[in-house]
Design a protein around this nucleic acid. Sequence first.
DNA 1: ATAGGGTTAG
Length: 634
Amino acid sequence: MSKLRKHAFFVSTNGRFRFFSAPATAAVADISFQPHLHEQSSMNSQNQVQSLSDSQFSLSVDPKFYISSLLNCRNSFQIRQIHAQVVACGLLSNLVVANKLLYIYVQYKAITDAHALFNRMGDRDSVSWSVMVGGFAKVGDYINCFRTFSEFIQCGMQLDSYTLPFVIRACRDKKDLVMGRLIHDIVLKSGLQLDHFVCAALVDMYAKCRAIDDARHLFDQMPNRDLVIWTVMICAFAESGNANESLVLFDRMREEGVVPDNVAMVSVVNACAKLGAMHKARFIHDFIAGNKFPLDVILGTAMIDMYAKCGSVKSAREIFDGMRKKNVISWSAMIAAYGYHGQGKKALELFPMMLSSGVLPNRITFVSLLYACSHIGLVEEGLQLFSSMQDDFSIVPDVKHYTCMVDLLGRAGRLSEALKLIESMSVEKDEGLWGALLGACRIHKNVDLAEMAAKSLLELQPQNPGHYVLLSNIYANAGRWQDVAKIRDLMTQRRLKKVPGWTWIEVDNQIHQFSVGDGTHPRSKDIYGMLKTLSKKLELAGYVPDTNFVLHDVDEEVKLGILSTHSEKLAIAFGLIATPEGTPIRIMKNLRVCGDCHSFSKYVSAVTKRVIIVRDANRFHHFEGGACSCGDYW
DNA sequence: ATAGGGTTAG
């Protein structure tokens, strides 16, 4: 056996052993062929293995030969073969070759092999250390990543601007702001000049760790801002809820002569989606078309999402149909778009189409599908999908899936089934889940269950004043005035105040913002005049505000009737005076629309013959001629 | 021989 070993490679592929003769000696002894690789590509066909082994018969001593062979590797099996040859001809002591080998292992996420090689390398330079630090970060092994980095420093190696971005990126991926600041500190104290790449990595780290001010500060200090760093900042602002600033940055970037690419456009499109402003969306679309940016999967998907969130599911579908390649994210985005536009049937139609195009659904696809069902009350379809998800696609439901199901069953009045489902859950329950149950209780006026849900919400988020208001409303509705007083006292004790909701409306490319009883708008006088007129018209149309709607989110104000100045009403009134007749009024709101406002919008559109679109979180309600297309009243 | 940015739910 030992004689045989001296002259042969044993290689296992697909569980079968193959035998290649080669004049290698030390190879087998030095490296182990353990199948501990985490490669993503499957093992290759035997043909390819054979052709590679043919080239082994003449071992080269030229380092360049192995470097180019490594670059041509198709899987980690081939890397190990070359590794063996490198060892065999004694080239492992060549740092360039060894580092390249290390790098290629890391590229294939074969971290165990990489680490083994690293440990055996007698000589290591900062390249070896950098690649190893980056390798651990790449596979998410942050403990070893940071440990290796600190060993690197302890070895007395000089910090350099190649190693740093790796470890800074690890902080970003781990969302570890404390470690990120620590490394930033180390950089500053090292006296190393802030290299462009190090700086860019720091900006990205701060941005992704939601330290937007630190990111901006560094960004402003950078002398040469390239496209990548602009893109990082555009994303950062969109992510931090300031999408307007993203668009401002995009303009400034172009003014400075930086030409955007597809990646940059995706970040801008994403900002538009967050903003929900249709004019901006159309402008960006024109820009993309005009500059002939190719509609790749990611850009296309981002545009589907943008149009959908700006209220046009039709435009979203046009983009979707125009995409040559679609992945699971594109399909899910389109399904979700139909879902929150209340077109659940169309969402469900897409599902079999997606499967027949060979794309497999993921957990998010199912969240979107179930959400679509819950929105239009397709109970049986939803139940079926929920079990199919587990049985046919082996997806374990998470809290979001349960939330959709609770919403679906609850809205249909099947509250006990919803509760049973919650009790059967093994995953952690969150506020969204209890919120869904509470919403259902509110529709079906189940005070006991509502109380339980609200209490759970209160336990989960004792600092959220909204939950106290909800619970107090539940008690008020049940006539339990002592409990109402208790909750109000608790709120005072804990110094909590209900934060008023805001409503946005986009008119002529401008966003107008309103809050309860707002008098700050320049056209405030006109707005209140319009509300008065509307009130009269509504009275004539026989409108009686539903002041008894259980458990509304807003305070008693709503009960004052039609003239109470809820933010949404102000926005609608403004929309009616500021837009020409026949223009749909698009209202964006990030809080739940209360029942009273729903009916208000409904009656207003009936009286004025206009289409009113209300965006409630990410759900749209289209009121046209008195009916809401989303089926919220089924 | 080593370094960066982008898409779906909530």
